[in-house]
Each structure stands twice: as structure tokens, then as C-alpha cells.
């Protein structure tokens, strides 16, 4: 069994890891992580331009590596800010795909659902493919889907915490309720968290901090990419039911009478 391509808006990816570039020590670290993981899609923020001097810009580097660039609206607190940021991203990158983030406060960085859904609806009406970062609320995931988002991206835990998937049951329920692609976004700490996300039925995983701030980012990028593939296959392989008591895997038949 092979990993099938995944369509996210107008993007198609063969590798189910989306690499968030936030927190990386350098552009070189990002490049090494891209190569090591085989990711085909990386997220970026939209910020004021600074003269790059003699160094290569992030834009030029990502283009050279031939990865697809997914802009986000990180740092936006209102629908209005997020909409303008998405328009700026579309202008800068000539893409209609936007990872929509509208957060409630700096302390938790948790999504602000009321502003988020307004922004999602408006951006969809403006022709965007919206990939919406959201809380792990299955019903709200359905609400987002009903306003036309192209993917629902629930958090496993707050951004940057590395706490893993705090409520696997909710992610599992979201998988049952949401029919558009489901991407686990935020909270990944290490490879096993990413494997779990995929085993729960997520279509992809976005990992930033867990990779960019690992001691060896490229090694962690590879580890998480492999875990995602493992989880993808495991989800489709049909796991055994959990049992309370043992079930011998070795048959009794033919056992010596000792």
C-alpha cells in the first residue's frame, strides 16, 4: 500500500507532513528539515519585509527547494486582520490557499472561534481555499465545513507546547464528522504523537516547533515524516480490538506434554 496524494485546496501533496517554519534557528535548518523529511508543503507567515543583505531570502530558498508555500494568518486576533493578511498573502505568493489562524490571546494562542468562522466564510466567498486552524471541537469542525473550508485543522494541544494529542477521542470524533481533509495542527511533541494523529484518521500533520526547536531538527523532521507514514498505513491496516485479557498468539495445538 502506498500513501495516496492528498488534495488541500489547489495543492496536492504526496508526503503527509506539512512543515511549519516558525522557530527555526536559520534558513539552513529549514532547508535541511525539508530535505530530510521529504515534505512538499511548508507554512510561512506574512510580515514586514526587512532588507536581507547578502543572505538568500526565505522566499528564494523555498522556491529553489521547489516546495509549495502555504501562507498563514498567524498573529491575527480578528477576522478583519486575518482577511487583509490573507489578501496580502495571495498578492505576495499568487496562491488562493490560506491557512487561517485567528487566535484569542497571546498566552494560550488558542483559536477564537467566533472571529474564525466569520473570516472563513468571508475568505471562501472571496475565492480562497481556507485551511482552518481550530480547537478540537467536532461540532465546530462541522460548522467550519459548512461555510466551505477546504480542510479542518484541529489542535492536539496549544501551539508550541509539545503536549501531544490531549483529547484523542475528540480527534477521532472529528474524523467521523468532518468529510474534508483533517489535519492535526499544533501540539505535536515527537514522532509518536504524529503517528497517533494518523492512526486516529487525520489526513496529514502539521509540525513546526517539534521539528524546528528539536536538538536535531532534520533528524526529528525525518522521524515525524516516517511516523506519519506509519500511522497512515496503520489506520488503513485495521488494528486489532483492545482486550482486557490475554489472547495467545501461539496455538496450543502440537504442544509437547512435558
Amino acid at each position: 500500500m502506498q500513501v495516496e496524494p492528498l488534495k488541500l485546496g489547489s495543492y496536492i501533496i504526496n508526503n503527509r507532513l506539512i512543515l511549519g517554519t516558525g522557530g527555526a534557528m536559520s534558513h539552513e535548518t529549514i532547508a535541511e528539515s525539508i530535505v530530510a523529511s521529504g515534505t512538499e508543503l511548508v507554512t510561512v507567515a506574512i510580515r514586514r519585509i526587512k532588507p536581507t543583505g547578502s543572505g538568500q531570502s526565505l522566499y528564494d530558498m523555498l522556491r529553489e527547494l521547489k516546495v509549495q508555500i502555504l501562507p498563514n494568518t498567524a498573529g491575527c486576533f480578528t477576522a478583519k486582520e486575518a482577511i487583509v493578511t490573507a489578501e496580502l498573502a495571495r498578492e505576495a505568493l499568487e496562491t488562493n490557499v490560506i491557512k487561517l489562524e485567528v487566535i484569542a490571546d497571546d498566552r494560550t494562542l488558542l483559536p477564537q472561534p467566533l472571529e474564525l468562522i466569520d473570516a472563513a466564510e468571508e475568505l471562501v466567498s472571496r475565492g480562497f481555499f481556507v485551511l482552518a486552524y481550530t480547537n478540537d471541537d467536532p461540532i465546530f469542525g462541522r460548522n467550519l465545513q459548512s461555510v466551505g473550508v477546504s480542510a479542518v485543522m484541529p489542535l492536539g494541544a496549544p501551539i508550541g507546547t509539545g503536549l501531544g494529542i490531549r483529547n484523542p477521542h475528540n480527534i477521532s470524533l472529528m474524523r467521523e464528522i468532518v468529510t474534508v481533509p483533517l489535519v492535526l495542527d499544533a501540539g505535536i511533541g515527537t514522532a509518536s504523537d504524529a503517528a497517533l494523529a494518523m492512526e486516529l484518521g487525520c489526513d496529514a500533520v502539521l509540525a513546526a516547533t517539534s521539528i524546528t526547536r528539536a536538538d536535531s531538527p532534520a533528524v526529528m523532521a525525518r522521524a515525524i515524516s516516517l511516523a506519519i507514514e506509519g500511522g497512515y498505513l496503520a489506520h488503513r491496516a485495521g488494528r486489532v480490538p483492545k482486550r482486557r485479557l490475554a489472547l495467545a498468539s501461539t496455538p496450543d495445538e502440537g504442544r509437547a506434554d512435558l
Binding site: 511549519g20 517554519t21 510580515r47 498567524a74
Partner: peptide, 10 residues
């Protein structure tokens, strides 16, 4: 005037 480009971000 705001002049923007991409930067590192999750």
C-alpha cells in the same frame, strides 16, 4: 505603506 513578504511561521 506596509510592504510585506513571507517570514518563518507555523
Amino acid at each position: 505603506v506596509e510592504i510585506l513578504t513571507i517570514s518563518q511561521g507555523g
